[in-house]
């Protein structure tokens, strides 16, 4: 076990993957000399050189498009998109090309690339640098989607993503980079496609992912003081989606809140709520509730920003009312 930050765990995953597999290259804006906008690739260029840490012009569509072509011809590119908000720039290459190539071409070839990016609120970065756009990705057949909440998961999920035969969108949370925690990076762990039960309690199930896992755990500790015990499930990957673990706990407990930082309407929480309702209707004592981001853009004001996404207080409040 080591004490490590989310950022350093990600960097270690890249280092270990690049040492293990010469085909792994990192391509993106500021990934080399600058070391990554959030410092994840800091120093890697000194070890691996500019041929493997490829600094690009500011051309997001072509960065993703080049990664597609490189992945089809023998490399294992990690394309870094500085902010998930730039996904709109790259949607054609990601969704019409990367996601569909294996299928359109009858299974002849896949696109083993990882699109690493980060999203979410927490830095007063404004409406175009703070979004949670995972629903766009989750909606698209052919893409894997990873949203790690912990340093240990960040490491193992990124290592696993770099063994996957299909395109993986790996969305980090910008507010988690400096979070330090105990992590086991040595044992070969397989958190891929398997939700983690972060806390067990008999009164309510909170299903979430990414930073909201920590908010849910904070809320659960506060709820415990009122005698309410919550189970907190961290989905880790949204594709594949581990509904088995969710269903198992929902059937035992019968009350569920799903939590997502993304805007509520047609979002990840909506999909989870629909699936839980279909699969577990007879076990539910109450409707599944969604605790999600407001259907508004994110403001630069810290007060408005924090107010537009779920907080531990909001989660705790909603759960208390659900159970009352």
């Amino acid at each position: 076990m080591v004490q490590i930050t989310y950022r350093d765990a990600l960097r270690q995953a890249l280092i270990d993957a690049m040492e293990a597999d010469e085909r792994v290259v990192v391509i993106g804006e500021e990934v080399g000399r600058y070391g990554g906008a959030y410092g994840v690739t800091k120093g890697l260029i000194d070890t691996f050189g500019g041929d493997r840490l490829i600094d690009t012009p500011i051309s997001e569509p072509a960065i993703i498009g080049a990664a597609v072509g490189a992945a089809m011809t023998g490399l294992r590119p990690v394309a870094e998109l500085m902010y998930v908000d730039f996904l709109g720039m790259t949607m054609d290459q990601l969704t019409n090309q990367a996601a569909k190539i294996r299928y359109m071409f009858g299974g002849q070839i896949g696109v083993p690339m990882v699109l690493r990016t980060q999203g979410g609120t927490g830095r007063s970065a404004g409406a175009q640098h703070s979004q949670s756009l995972e629903a766009w990705v989750m909606h698209m057949p052919g893409l894997r989607l990873v949203m790690p909440a912990t340093a240990e998961d960040a490491y193992h999920l990124l290592r696993h993503a770099l063994t996957m035969p299909d395109p993986v969108v790996f969305i980090e949370h910008k507010a988690l980079y400096t979070r330090k925690e105990e992590a086991d990076l040595t044992t070969a762990k397989r958190p891929w496609g398997k939700a983690a039960v972060r806390r067990e309690g008999q009164d309510v199930v909170i299903v979430t992912y990414s930073r909201q896992v920590h908010y849910a755990l904070e809320a659960a500790e506060a709820l415990a003081k009122d005698g309410i015990e919550a189970t907190v499930i961290d989905l880790r990957t949204l594709n594949p989606l581990d509904m088995e673990t969710v269903i198992e706990h929902v059937e035992k407990i019968g009350r569920v809140a799903v939590v997502s930082e993304g805007p509520m309407t047609a979002g990840v929480a909506a999909e989870l709520a629909a699936r839980i309702t279909e699969e577990c209707f007879d076990f539910l004592h109450d409707p599944v509730i969604r605790i999600a981001g407001e259907d508004i853009p994110i403001s630069v004001s810290q007060e408005l920003e924090a107010g537009s996404v779920p907080s531990p207080a909001l989660i705790g409040d909603a759960v208390r009312r659900l159970l009352s």
């Binding site: 290259v25 498009g65 080049a66 597609v68 072509g69 490189a70 992945a71 019409n96």
Partner: peptide, 19 residues
């Protein structure tokens, strides 16, 4: 997609150069 297949050759070029 008009132009959609163009950047893939940049990636193929990177592969050819590196490999």
């Amino acid at each position: 997609i008009v132009g959609g297949g163009i950047p893939a050759v940049v990636g193929a070029g990177l592969s050819a150069k590196r490999l």
